[in-house]
Structures are given as C-alpha cells and as structure tokens.
C-alpha cells in the first residue's frame, strides 16, 4: 500500500465509524416508524414500501400521521411531499460534491436525505465526500429497512396505545423541529403554523390543517424585505 493510499484508508475509518453509528440509530428509528405505521392502520407491506421507496423519515411519519387520522389520500400525499421538498435542496449541494453523471444520477438520488447530506458536506475532500455519502447511505438504508420490518411486525401484534405509541409521532415531529427553533424567525413560523392548523381543525377536513401550515411557510418565505440565510430543519 502506498503512503497516500494508507493515508486515505486512515481518513476513511472515522467516517465509516460515524456511518455505522448513524445506521444503528436508523434501525431503532425505523423500528419506531414501523410500529407507529402498523399501529395506526397501515399494513406491513405499506410500511415497507414507504421505507423502501419514500425513504425519508419525516415524510413517512407525516404520511402515516395524516392518513391514520382519517385524512384524505391527497392530503397525506401532499404533506409527505411538501415535507420532503428539502431533499431537492440537498441535491443542489450534493450534485456539486458528487457530480453524478447519466444513469448514476438515478440511483444516487434515492440516497439524498438529511443524514447522507450532512455526512458528505462535513468532509474535507472529494474522495471522502463520496465515501461518506455512499457508506452512510448504504448502511442507513439497509438498517432502516430491517428496523421498519421488525417494528411493523411488532406493531401489528400489540395495541399501539398500550405502548404509548400515540405519543410517538408528535414526539418525533417535535424533536425534528427543535433545532430549527433556535432562530427567532423560525419560532414565529412554527407558532403561526401550529395556530393556523389548530384553528382549522374544527372546520376543515383531516389533513388540510397541516397543508394550510405549509401556506404559512410560503407567506413567511416570500415576505419582502427579510432575506436571511436559510437553514433547513432536519
């Protein structure tokens, strides 16, 4: 092994360790998704299709939350897609780092999520960026599927409210939201989103209140004058 290759391998080790850590975490998070999904009326197969193809935790929880509460299919789809819109913005940074060409773009796209983006952009050079993206993506994806399957099978075997799983989805949403609340502007947007949604609950069909909250984000974002540097919530 040449000196340069040895250095490269040494630099990869901590990246791989971090990727495995994220993967273990994803297995547990995936298990909670699986349990919540089947607990709230999705089949094991539907939970698995969401994990395999949608492959974006917050969107999966949002879809399940809206669909389980009796929201229309359209509202559930819209909530999941709007929440997943941030992945498109990760793609902008990642296409610069990874420069996927041709068909490589098709499979690279599947792995564009919070964790892979965070790991890739944190690396100092091109080689490590690619390594971080792919090691995190492949390990996380594998364990996410296994976790979902385990959780989904467990969730369909027990009564979800006995396990306190009705608190699971709001707790996950709050934890995902929390880091963004450091910014004052974001706190106002969060408050407005929650108030608008609650106000609409008695009058609008299920699912619509959450979509109306998306309107709050659009208004806040387009508001003339304020142009701050955006930072996506998880």
């Amino acid at each position: 092994m040449t000196a340069a290759a040895a250095r490269g391998a040494a630099a990869r080790r901590p990246v791989l360790r971090a990727a495995v850590g994220i993967g273990v975490y994803a297995a547990a998070f995936g298990a909670s998704f699986g349990a919540v999904a089947t607990g709230s009326g999705l089949s094991v197969g539907q939970a698995m299709v969401l994990s395999l193809v949608m492959f974006s935790g917050a969107s999966q929880f949002a879809f399940t939350g809206v669909a389980a509460a009796g929201g229309s299919a359209v509202a559930a789809v819209a909530a999941a897609l709007l929440l997943g819109l941030r992945n498109a913005f990760y793609g902008v940074s990642l296409s610069r780092l990874l420069a996927p060409r041709g068909s490589a773009r098709l499979w690279t796209a599947h792995f564009v999520i919070d964790e892979t983006t965070a790991m890739a952009v944190a690396q100092p050079d091109r080689d490590l960026q690619r390594y971080a993206f792919w090691s995190t993506g492949l390990i996380l994806c594998t364990l996410w599927q296994l976790g979902t399957l385990g959780g989904a099978l467990a969730g369909s075997a027990v009564d979800p409210s006995d396990l306190g799983l009705d608190a699971a989805a709001p707790a996950v949403f709050l934890a995902l939201l929390w880091p963004a609340l450091r910014r004052r502007e974001a706190r106002w947007v969060a408050l407005a989103g929650a108030v608008v949604a609650l106000a609409l609950v008695p009058v609008a069909p299920q699912g619509v209140p959450v979509l109306a909250a998306a309107g709050v984000a659009v208004l806040a974002g387009l508001r003339p004058g304020a142009v701050a540097s955006p930072e996506a919530a998880s």
Partner: peptide, 25 residues
C-alpha cells in the same frame, strides 16, 4: 433566496402543525 427561505420554513411550519394537530386532535 426566496425559494430557499420558503424551503427552510416549510418543515418548520408543517412539523409544528403536525405536533399541534396530533396532540389536540
């Protein structure tokens, strides 16, 4: 910049709404 701001706010307002709706409804 405007598009980025809307994109940054979308998860914030929607996650807050999801918390509120799921808790109280």
């Amino acid at each position: 910049p405007r598009v980025q701001r809307v994109a940054a706010f979308l998860p914030v307002s929607m996650l807050a709404a999801l918390v509120a709706v799921q808790l109280f409804d």
